[in-house]
Simulated assay, not measured.
Amino acid sequence: MSAAVPMLRAERVEGQGQVPATVGESPVWRAAEQALYWVDIPARKIVRLRVDTATRSEWVLPEKVACIAFGRDGKVLAGCESGLFAVTLPEADVGVDAPARALVTKLAAPVFSAPDMRFNDGRCDRQGRFWAGTMVQDMAAAVPAGALYRFDERGVLSAPVIEALIVQNGLAWSPDGRTMYLSDSHPSRRLVWTFDYDIDEGRPHNRRVFADLHRYEGRPDGAAIDVDGCYWICANDAGRVLRFTPDGTLDRQIEVPAIKPAMCAFGGRELDTLFVTSIRPGVGATEHDGHLFAVRPGVQGCAEADYAGAL
């Protein structure tokens, strides 16, 4: 990294003694609750932290959950192992010592093109269509069987829109919704692409390389967009979050105490706090790996759209 690029440092949000996530992903800010939600994929958990009171709640699902978005009725739309689910998170009996059971209804499922696949990164476009991609769970196998799907407001799951992905990631849309971003995290790819996006049809086209992380440290993981249209991408394996301007220039970076930052999201009362989830490596983990971090980078983020359909 160039020393000329400004560096900030994220600080850990969770206190001592909090059990770390194995794979912390998909942070989503809920302004009405002043709460951040995220998932721990292998633990099959959705986690909520009410930031003002530091109150934490957890719910367990029947299978691995990788990405979430909220419906307009407060239910959760979740990408899991076998498909997409509508999830209700009951407030009753949400304990401190044990997670409550989420109530789930299967909505749709793709025809997976290889064994042992699941959904990975997902979020809504500005119009409220839910997009999510799939991957083979054994990332080391480097099987390009992943695909990106659209789940529209009618509850219809598309055929694969983009195929031949190894580890789909990095979904985001520009503030006006007319540019879509997508990454592939696999070490052999390490690319972020950008697309022109038809907001009426929900169709990306004119794919081109936006950022090649072979030029930088780390692999591109989950991302967020700020009000200036800049793209914040977690640099997994490098303990960094990188900000690229709309023309692809790296202009800021954030140091994260965890080596594997996984995904970031803007939150806080003014949407001026960047929250970062992380992964705990199987070997050589530190006390910070797998925890949640936050920083105020001096810019506001864009509010995430809710799913526009019924759940």
Rank of each mutant, 00 (worst) to 15 (best):
D176P: 13
A141V: 08
S158A: 05
D212S: 04
T179K: 02
L165M: 06
D176G: 12
F210V: 05
A159H: 10
R219H: 08
A211V: 02
I225N: 07
G155N: 05
V167P: 06
N236S: 14
A141L: 10
Q168S: 14
E217N: 04
S174V: 05
P144C: 09
M180N: 08
A141D: 10
E217I: 00
R189Y: 07
R189H: 10
W173M: 10
L171K: 01
V227Y: 05
V161D: 03
D198Y: 15
V143Y: 12
V156P: 14
S158I: 06
L171S: 08
L191G: 09
G239R: 07
E163W: 12
S174R: 03
N236K: 00
S185A: 12
D226W: 12
D221K: 00
G229M: 03
N169K: 12
D196S: 14
W232R: 00
L148T: 05
A142G: 08
Q168W: 01
Y149V: 10
M180D: 09
A235Q: 03
V143A: 12
A164P: 01
D184H: 05
R208T: 08
L157P: 13
P220W: 02
G218L: 02
Q137E: 09
R190F: 13
A224Q: 02
A142E: 13
D221Y: 15
A238I: 01
I166G: 02
V192S: 06
R219E: 13
V143W: 10
W232Q: 02
A223P: 08
F151G: 07
E163S: 15
F151T: 06
P220M: 04
Y216D: 10
M139G: 15
I199A: 10
S183K: 09
G239W: 07
F195D: 00
P187Y: 15
N169W: 15
W173S: 14
Y181W: 11
P160R: 00
S158E: 01
N236G: 11
S174C: 14
L165P: 09
F195H: 07
D198G: 07
A147L: 04
Y231W: 06
E163Y: 12
D184N: 03
P187Q: 04
G170N: 13
P187M: 08
L182N: 06
A223I: 03
P204T: 09
M139D: 15
I233V: 15
V209Y: 00
Y149N: 05
V143P: 08
L165F: 14
M180P: 12
P204N: 01
G222E: 07
V167M: 12
F151H: 07
Y216K: 01
V161P: 01
W193F: 15
R150Q: 08
D237F: 15
